[in-house]
């Protein structure tokens, strides 16, 4: 019974990472939480991992607002190169 719950720190991190994206399964979450009860270092790691996730989420919001377009100059240069290829 308890061997089901017994995971090492490396496995705990794997689950912890998945859960950052809500992709850990129910049984994985159980195992992780059980491990966290007994492992202080992984508790800290999990907390910090979540902090990193929150920062990245903030960044993701910024990125969504950005528009990336090619400059007119880039497009002109590209057109010239295309012309040359078309003439060949």
């Amino acid at each position: 019974m308890f061997s089901f719950f017994n995971i090492k720190c490396d496995k705990a991190h794997e689950i912890c990472n998945k859960s950052q994206y809500n992709e850990a399964t129910f049984s994985e979450k159980l195992k992780l939480n059980w491990h966290l009860l007994t492992c202080k270092i992984c508790r800290l790691y999990t907390k910090q991992n979540s902090t990193i996730t929150s920062i990245c989420k903030e960044k993701a919001e910024d990125v969504k607002m950005q528009e990336n377009n090619l400059s007119d100059l880039d497009k002109e240069q590209l057109k010239e190169k295309m012309e040359k290829l078309l003439q060949q």
Partner: peptide
């Protein structure tokens, strides 16, 4: 096996720095 190496163990973070995640500098640091 499978457990933390001592030198690599995470240290606790500065609380005040941690609460401020909307900070632009923090985003540039990441």
């Amino acid at each position: 096996e499978g457990n933390w190496i001592e030198e690599r163990v995470p240290q606790s973070w500065d609380k005040s720095a941690e609460q401020n995640i909307e900070n632009d500098e923090l985003k540039s640091q990441i």
